[in-house]
Design a protein around this nucleic acid. Structure first.
Lengths: 111, 111
DNA sequence: ATAATATATCTAAGATTTTGAATGTAGTGG
DNA sequence: CCACTACATTCAAAATCTTAGATATATTAT
């Protein structure tokens, strides 16, 4: 319960709506230090909300039970949080070096 | 969010599933000091989850938006909390002096 | 007005959570 | 083996939350 009642954690979970993401991506998306994000991920992992999958150097996280999203939507609605949650997770970040973001839209050859 | 992620508050909300209850009833039901219960009620009130109605000396509370119960049920299910929430709110307490409890089942003339 | 009852609020100590800083570990490439 | 990268963990200070104790307010009765 209190697991998701935390801004950074809530944000992380929203980012995981579209599927699994690597720590580096989440770090860029949150605009926080890596250690901090890792801490929150540890919290969520220990609470059994997310699971990790290692692939080489990278670690990918995804939610264990997608019903948490329903819960978040419900909570959002009750709190009168108008912004439809489904839209707040841009899967591609311009300044992210993770594989997914690198491959797509990586036209940053400007200045 | 963190509003309901608190044992006493969660309990209070469960007690309010059956409708409005007075503070004295909630106090007996929780087995806590009156001031403590009142504090939690203040918390819930300020968070906009419950509303109060005064009637003479008594103050009755009820939830503002019953969808919080759906939220609680959802959360309970996800957390694997088997006990079906609907059953944990005995409306009548033997040792409660509030009007509702006094009127009914007040046969406590035994030892 | 005084007393009694039901509930509310204030305060501060204690407990917990959050956050930053430093450091540790595990894969990968040279 | 050494260096590097991506991530994890530990530790402690700072912020926040919880709770007990004392006290205040409002309503009713005398």
């Amino acid at each position: 319960m209190k697991v998701i009642g935390h801004p950074a954690r809530w944000q992380i979970l929203n980012l995981l709506r579209s599927g699994e993401e690597c720590v580096c991506h989440l770090t860029v998306a949150l605009g926080q230090r890596q250690a901090y994000v890792s801490q929150q991920l540890m919290f969520l992992r220990r609470a059994g909300v997310i699971v990790d999958r290692k692939e080489g150097l990278r670690v990918y996280y995804q939610v264990k039970d997608r019903r948490v999203f329903d819960l978040m939507d419900e909570a959002g609605k009750i709190a009168g949080y108008e912004g439809k949650a489904e839209e707040e997770h841009p899967p591609i970040l311009a300044n992210c070096a993770c594989p997914r973001c690198e491959s797509q839209g990586a036209h940053k050859h400007s200045i």
